[in-house]
Design a protein around this nucleic acid. Sequence first.
DNA 1: CATTGAAAATAATCGGCGATCAATTTATTA
DNA 2: TAATAAATTGATCGCCGATTATTTTCAATG
Lengths: 191, 191
Amino acid sequence: MILDATRSLVEKEGYSKVSIRKITNEVGYTSGTLYLVFKDIDELLLELHIETLERLHALLHAIPMTGDPEADLLKLSDGYSEFTKENRNLWNALFEHKIEDGKVLPERYDRAIFKLIDLAIEAIRPLYQGGSDEDIIHDARVLWASLYGILSLDASKKLSRYEDTQSFIASLIKNYVAGIRSNLSDASISL
Amino acid sequence: MILDATRSLVEKEGYSKVSIRKITNEVGYTSGTLYLVFKDIDELLLELHIETLERLHALLHAIPMTGDPEADLLKLSDGYSEFTKENRNLWNALFEHKIEDGKVLPERYDRAIFKLIDLAIEAIRPLYQGGSDEDIIHDARVLWASLYGILSLDASKKLSRYEDTQSFIASLIKNYVAGIRSNLSDASISL
DNA sequence: CATTGAAAATAATCGGCGATCAATTTATTA
DNA sequence: TAATAAATTGATCGCCGATTATTTTCAATG
């Protein structure tokens, strides 16, 4: 119940507006009760974030892949982009949440992210014929982070007020994939 | 005085820990006084952020460019990356700050970002012989946002606990630049 | 059925937050 | 010096997350 109320409050009012009092009122309890279920508000919100990441993964996982890296990355990015639009406040919440100094994200959180990056890994794998997994994972992470950067700056209007996110993402993928191809063939030529 | 105190508090304790009471105590006033100088805490923090962006620009602007896009982008990225490390809390503050719904960033803020992206624009310009400025600006923004994504996820440990930021950035630049080169030459061949 | 003990939930409280504003102090000008 | 304007305060408001003693609920036991 608490998790449901939190999700709906974040969706409705945004991350910064939720409070323990609002959450517990929503489900007909007083604020103290929340602490019987969650250690603190951080733990509750992390639970919500993991859920959000898993929902995103479910969405992307259901997209049929073609085997063409560029096309598949675009499909994944489109799905991702759409998810951020339709779950704006939940997605923003993922990154507005700050972990306190010294604390580390729970293992389940890391795992949820890993599963997402795995999708990108599988999408770009055909680019590397016999290349090491490490390189693939590395590039998938770069793409993942870059995509996040574009979506994030776009959402906060700190990138451009006028241009289309979609075209930024398309450029990223097109050029990065071409770059991998080009750099790989350079390497094989030089052998 | 207030701006100085705010900067030093953000540097010392981090963005989320600053408060009007702490700031004004630091300079020997009471909290109400701040509102004679700034409309609200948002306006004060935006002032600090603009200052941070301008300091970053000054740093990057002073780096000598060679004319080689990949090398120059790497130099700029290194400078940027170093700045985020040496001004961790100030840089985090830039992106932890959320603008309220409906509000828009002040024109000076946008301009400060533009000036930063301009540096990337000039760095990659040699790649485009006779290409339109729009394309160049577009790619510079993609690079800027991607770089932000890498630095940001890395700082919040939401990317990888083990790998080196530097190698992510290097991959981004290497592949993206190679991609631009490759896609441009494809286009000219197809003419 | 009545009793008891644990679990669930509350109400009150703490210190802190951003913001507002009438009242007061300080400085400037006539 | 007196009158006016500017600067500053202190109290207050309605929030916040968190803690804890107290009360309520309720199922298990005799």
